[in-house]
Design a protein around this nucleic acid. Structure first.
Lengths: 242, 242
DNA sequence: ACCTGAACACCGTTCAAGT
DNA sequence: ACCTGAACACCGTTCAAGT
């Protein structure tokens, strides 16, 4: 058939199909040939829209990051978010929060908490792609926008720039780590694995996989609260010195 | 040549070569054929020692986990560790710590801190394999031993079992997240990436990659302290109620 | 501009054949 | 028991050819 008068593919359609394939069957199942088949097209066709498979993966990753809510960081994030309002639908909330948060430096723990939950939810919806995304923002616009919003808000809240960088980093460590893989599901449900002679305290570990959702959710919330409590202690010590 | 009178390969030699390849050139560079070439052997030879490539990867992962020090968790971990003493060389330290730590329930924050540092150091030495290892302990003996030691120590320190599970999970989230990829290196060193109109707060981000080591180390230590401080608050509230 | 089939240099894995 | 070469069904990517 060669070139049809209306294109069969678009970057958006390819990205959506790739994410679906990754979600359903894992990162290894994403091959250019398989993806092309899924799109009823021949393998090399994809190269009219992406230079390489890595390029395509980058676009998939950025589409996931784009789902993270940044509106709690106020004006700056709101303005940046408005550019992509049609995609994310976050502009209304951003506008609502703008102005009030911007001057309220003490609100950083709440902002960080809300953001971390949204961040985790976005990644946990697509766990198979987290290893790729955890490599850093690279040149992906949504990932850079996220880093900018977090760092900007922390600095405006009174955190020294060096500390703000570290907090951005450690929050990413925690969120990506929690979304990378289920803790509970990592323990085989087969009770015979946990020989009492070898692992005296893991007698109940085979039940973990069954409570997968609540265990991981509870661990995330516990860790998030602990992290924010610990950072609040640091913040208070910061104020004492000035 | 067919079968030589003394075997050319062993599981240990294969695992060591695979880890070296992964460290030097990344997870994608590990192909059975490439690895076989590295070992001066033909591709299918590996299948005399491992059933599949995933099996081989499992062994590589467990060898990395085996480098994590568990001696700070006292007797239980020491006894388990003694079984693999020749491999890890951790038996002496385990014996030294045993007995004193076992009854000292209040020592959990120090134990957790030392363990987290050793855990991170072991993973950070082999960052390219962290995505595989983060999938959970599975049936890998060293990974199960680690989970057993942490959980056992927390329970013996007075944490309720549910909380101990969550703490084990959230610590793994944080450590694997911090070892998965450098935060600093994720930001391109090219200053032109950070257009002030798009990312108003990232004007200095191109310098991050240059301070890679200190940024990531600082973020890890800050996060670890915050986490332990936050957990100590919880622990204190626990004591109040009983 | 956008799709196709053919081709190249790779994969993981199986299997019969050798010692 | 442990290695080999040949073979199968896959990969990512390039390229000339079609409209």
């Amino acid at each position: 058939m060669a070139r049809p008068r209306t294109p069969l593919l678009s970057r958006e359609r390819i990205v959506a199909a790739a994410l679906r394939l990754i979600d359903d069957e894992g990162l290894d199942a994403l091959s250019t040939r398989r993806l092309a088949t899924e799109l009823s097209v021949s393998g090399p066709s994809l190269y009219n829209h992406f230079a390489t498979k890595d390029d395509l993966l980058d676009a998939v990753v950025d589409s996931v990051i784009g789902e993270v809510d940044l509106s709690m960081f106020g004006t700056a994030a709101g303005a940046a978010g408005a550019a992509g309002a049609a995609e994310t639908g976050g502009a209304a909330r951003a506008a609502g929060a703008a102005g009030s948060v911007r001057t309220a430096g003490t609100a950083w723990p709440e902002a960080l908490r809300d953001w971390a939950r949204s961040y985790r939810a976005a990644l946990a919806a697509h766990p198979n792609i987290v290893p790729v995304l955890a490599q850093g923002p690279g040149r992906r616009p949504n990932a850079l926008r996220l880093a900018d919003a977090v760092f900007g808000h922390l600095v405006e809240s009174g955190w020294p720039r060096g500390q703000a960088t570290r907090i951005g980093a450690l929050m990413r460590y925690f969120v990506t780590g929690s979304a990378l893989a289920s803790f509970a599901a990592g323990f085989p449900a087969d009770a015979e694995v946990y020989d009492a002679a070898d692992y005296p305290h893991l007698g109940e570990a085979h039940r973990l996989a069954g409570h997968r959702g609540t265990v991981d959710e509870g661990a995330f919330e516990t860790g998030l609260e602990a992290l924010l409590d610990g950072l609040a202690l640091r913040y208070a010590r910061l104020a004492e010195r000035s």
